[in-house]
C-alpha cells in the first residue's frame, strides 16, 4: 500500500498540469474555458477526472495512516491490514459520493 501512495501521488503530481491548464483556460476567456469544459466532459475527460478524484481521495485517506505511523503507532500486522482496508473502502466511498453529487447537480 506504500507503493499505492507513491502511484497515486505521482498521478496527482502529473495531473496538476491539467488543473493548471484548466485554471489558465478559465483566465483566458469564455472560448478557452468552454473548450476546457468540453474536454473535461468528454468520455476520456471524465475517465481521467474519475481516476484523479479516486487518486486524490486514496492519497488523502492513505496519508492519514502516515500520521498514525508518525506518532509511533499502528505498526502491528493486523492494524496495518485494517488500515489498508479502511483506506480502500473509505476512499472508494468518498469518490462515489463526489460523483453522485456531480451527476445529481449537473
Amino acid at each position: 500500500m506504500s507503493v499505492a501512495h507513491r502511484v497515486t501521488g505521482t498521478g496527482l503530481y502529473l495531473g496538476t498540469v491539467l488543473i493548471a491548464a484548466w485554471l489558465v483556460a478559465a483566465a483566458s476567456g469564455p472560448a478557452a474555458f468552454d473548450t476546457a469544459q468540453w474536454i473535461a466532459g468528454s468520455i476520456l475527460g471524465r475517465l481521467v477526472l474519475f481516476l484523479y478524484s479516486f487518486s486524490l481521495m486514496h492519497h488523502m485517506v492513505g496519508g492519514l495512516r502516515h500520521f498514525v505511523w508518525d506518532m509511533g503507532k499502528g505498526y502491528e500486522p493486523q492494524t496495518r491490514m485494517a488500515m489498508a482496508k479502511f483506506t480502500l473502502v473509505i476512499s472508494a466511498a468518498l469518490t462515489i459520493l463526489i460523483w453522485v453529487v456531480v451527476l445529481a447537480t449537473r
Binding site: P30, D34, S53, M60, G63, F67, D70, I98, V102, R106
Partner: peptide
C-alpha cells in the same frame, strides 16, 4: 507533514469548489 495537514483541509475545500463549478456557465 505540515503541508500534508494543510492539504487535508484544503483538498476537501478544493473538491467542494470544483463540484460547485460543475455545469456552471462561464
Amino acid at each position: 507533514r505540515l503541508t500534508a495537514v494543510a492539504n487535508l483541509i484544503l483538498t476537501v475545500i478544493f473538491v467542494f469548489i470544483v463540484v460547485a463549478l460543475v455545469g456552471k456557465p462561464y
